[in-house]
Design a protein around this nucleic acid. Structure first.
Lengths: 350, 350
DNA sequence: CTTAGCAGTCTTGGCGCCGGAGTGCCAACC
DNA sequence: GGTTGGCACTCCGGCGCCAAGACTGCTAAG
């Protein structure tokens, strides 16, 4: 549950802070000096704890909901707990296996795998889980196919190493034949093979179009199609477990819940909340105001990136009350991310 | 607001029932005889209304939350109101235009159009809106393309009249060349053109495979791919506006909200609730227990199918408290469905 | 059949009170 | 100087009580 040193706090105060956070996470009740000494063997009296708590409050780690109530951790209190006081948790091997089993059975379609992982994480964490779907532009180009539909319309399909990633309809200013599009598809495939999508340059498309002896309008259509295929402004986010939040006592206030639901529906906002955690190596945590949204002061988010090969291509996150079991949720998210990473190797198109 | 005859109720009782329902929908408070006579010009005294209300209760149209409270409509009361008492509402032409404008700007991708319509309906109705996406099997076949990825893997892309509808990865038991797949694609396209997907028979696929001189394993792969492309067990459902429900007084009880959120996440359940309304000509309404789910006794759903050409291919629904403004929501859903129907013609691939 | 009047019922909200938990401070102690 | 027991004080939350308000059902008269 706790231990560690805790910055310039002094050993005992750090320990008390850790215990207060731990106890508050468990009970959702402000914790007082007396109940703390009764429940935990602190080796000092409640009066001493009281003094330390007063100093922890002065230092900004704890706050009092009102005089004559116990203390509750502040953002800084949680932050210190997460960064320096809490012991990292590990998943039970039983849970580890469960995650593996549930993700293995899922289909080989990328979207379904992601959705499955999201639901699983929602269930296990008993909070709201959300997972960003991989942006195609970090994936490797495998195949493009321009399909002729009518003389002036067609659809471009791009297949990447993680599966069919996108399709995009196009219109032409001049007539084309099915054969034109096939020639161009072949030229593009020859030229772009095994390239990371992001690095495909306009000049290469232009060269292929020229090789197929087609005009400017086709070039524009292909470029647009590729751009669409590459990435949306914000990736799609899959979410699950909103109903779990209702069990938390902090949601007696429906307005909080309202803003959460709204944010979850606006996928862009949800993505922006965690976008910068993509580059993090392991689990990262944002607590309360750190999320930068007034409506989210009572929430925290744990985020872990998942990878394809070496490259981080998406993130798993858990959103819950600020009073969340950080250690456990970080372990869960990390374990699921790891399993998802392994799973993606399985479905790679080589 | 009301009027009409109302079955074997007698004119005045029907009118009183209509007024009670109307008033309860507006205020969410049980309505009593006295306040009713004060607010509406019924032409009779509160004592008379009292007597009629007692009979309406005996007839099962009204219920009392407790003695000495006003009355509240029962499922049967709402049902009678919706079927026979209420006046159909029409949308303001301003609203009509707003719907048209918002749906016009959306992209030409089917999924985005549907998502847009869902969000719009959620916003306008101030309730939870959900829309089923069209099952491909009612659409017309336009093109199939088998794309060669490796000697034993490929992906099948099916394009229908409403756009790329599905892709499906396949594995082969024996090696194939890109040319094999191209030949087969051409054979299939020649044979299946302009057919409704649902009606494509196994024999036709077999004939095309034979024509391309390919084996049983390819045939199975194509059949599976077509089956996947055709329809999932239940169509995907797009939902929006869950947060609107929080404004309703009936949601002080969080357990109700919990089950709603759960059901919305389980798309299958949501779809099953309304599946049988697909064949209905206009707006259909399910009230409380009519939904056949214990957790949903306090809710109602309004559903309107939307079409592609003559054929109903999906439904727009609004889920809200049983105490919902039926007339308005029916008009809204119908108006949105109509606009969506028109919009789909625009994006048809001819 | 309708209506006025009336007694009875039930919920809701305000008020005051008390108990519990916790704090801060002080003086004593090691 | 840090630690501790003791004590006075504060504040929230729950409980019981009461009064107000809103309805109902019933009865008897119009």
């Amino acid at each position: 549950m706790k231990s560690g040193e805790g910055g310039g706090l002094g050993k005992r105060k750090a320990y008390i802070l850790a215990t207060v956070v731990y106890e508050y996470i468990a009970t959702a009740e402000p914790v007082g000096s007396q109940s703390l000494t009764q429940k935990y063997n602190l080796g000092v009296s409640s009066a001493t704890v009281r003094n330390d708590m007063a100093e922890l409050e002065a230092g900004g780690y704890l706050v009092q909901p009102h005089t004559s109530a116990g203390r509750v951790p502040s953002d800084a209190g949680y932050r210190t707990y997460v960064d320096r006081l809490m012991e990292p948790e590990l998943l039970q091997s039983e849970e580890r296996h469960r995650i593996r089993d549930e993700l293995r059975d899922a289909s080989r379609e990328l979207d379904e795998i992601i959705d499955n992982a999201t639901r699983l994480l929602g269930r296990l964490s008993k909070n709201l889980a959300f997972v960003t779907k991989p942006q195609p532009d970090a994936q490797t180009f495998r195949h493009i196919q321009l399909i002729w539909l009518t003389a002036r319309t067609g659809v471009a399909i791009v297949v990447t190493s993680l599966g069919v990633s996108a399709q995009s309809m196009f219109e032409l200013a001049a007539d084309a034949t099915p054969d034109d599009l096939t020639r161009l598809s072949n030229a593009l495939n020859a030229r772009l093979g095994n390239r990371v999508l992001r690095e495909v340059a306009e000049a290469e498309v232009a060269a292929s179009v020229a090789e197929a002896a087609l005009g400017e309008d086709v070039k524009q259509a292909v470029l647009t199609a590729l751009r669409n295929a590459r990435s949306a402004e914000a990736p799609t986010v899959s979410a699950a477990g909103a109903q779990n939040l209702l069990d938390q006592p902090e949601f007696q206030d429906l307005r909080k819940l309202r803003s959460i639901l709204r944010i979850v529906e606006e996928q862009k906002t949800l993505y922006d909340l965690v976008a910068d955690s993509m580059t993090s190596e392991s689990a990262s945590v944002k607590i309360g105001r750190e999320l930068g949204q007034d409506e989210m002061t009572d929430f925290s988010i744990v985020t872990v990136p998942y990878r394809f090969g070496e490259q981080a291509i998406g993130m798993l996150s858990i959103l819950g009350p600020r009073r969340m079991p950080y250690g456990r949720l970080m372990a869960l998210a990390a374990g699921t991310a790891e399993t998802l990473t392994e799973r993606l190797i399985d479905v790679e198109i080589k």
